[in-house]
Amino acid sequence: GSMEQGFLPKGWEVRHAPNGRPFFIDHNTKTTTWEDPRLKIPA
Rank of each mutant, 00 (worst) to 15 (best):
G20M: 02
D36V: 00
I25D: 07
H27F: 07
G1W: 07
N28P: 01
E4I: 14
P37F: 00
T29S: 08
M3R: 12
G20I: 00
K30S: 10
H27V: 07
S2Y: 12
T31M: 08
F24N: 01
S2M: 11
G11Q: 02
A43M: 12
P37M: 01
A17P: 04
P9K: 04
H27R: 01
I41P: 12
L39Q: 10
D36M: 00
T31G: 03
T33M: 04
W34A: 03
N28K: 06
W12D: 04
S2Q: 13
H16W: 15
W34R: 04
D36K: 00
T33E: 02
Q5H: 13
K30R: 09
P9Q: 03
H16Q: 09
P18M: 07
E13G: 01
T33N: 02
P9T: 04
T32S: 09
H27D: 04
E35A: 07
A17I: 03
R21D: 14
L39G: 11
W12I: 06
T33D: 04
L8D: 02
T32D: 03
P9H: 03
K10M: 14
N28G: 04
T33W: 08
A43G: 13
T31D: 05
P9Y: 02
P37V: 02
T33K: 02
K40F: 11
L8A: 02
I25M: 05
A17G: 09
T31C: 15
W12F: 04
P22Y: 08
P37D: 03
L8S: 01
F23R: 07
P22H: 15
L39W: 10
A17S: 08
G1V: 13
H27I: 08
E35F: 14
G6Y: 08
A17N: 06
L39A: 10
A17R: 04
P22Q: 10
H16E: 07
G1S: 12
T31Q: 07
D36E: 02
Q5L: 15
F7V: 14
H16D: 06
P42Y: 08
W34S: 05
D36N: 00
N19V: 00
E35V: 10
I41R: 10
K10C: 15
K40C: 15
T31R: 08
L39N: 10
G11P: 00
A43T: 10
R38M: 05
L8I: 03
R15E: 05
V14K: 07
G20C: 10
V14F: 01
M3L: 14
H27T: 09
R15T: 06
P37L: 02
T31I: 08
P42F: 08
V14Y: 01
P18Q: 08
S2C: 14
F7P: 15
P22L: 12
G6Q: 10
A43I: 12
K30E: 09
R38A: 04
A17C: 15
W12Y: 03
R15W: 04
Q5V: 13
N19H: 04
E4V: 14
T33Y: 09
E13R: 00
D26V: 00
N28Q: 06
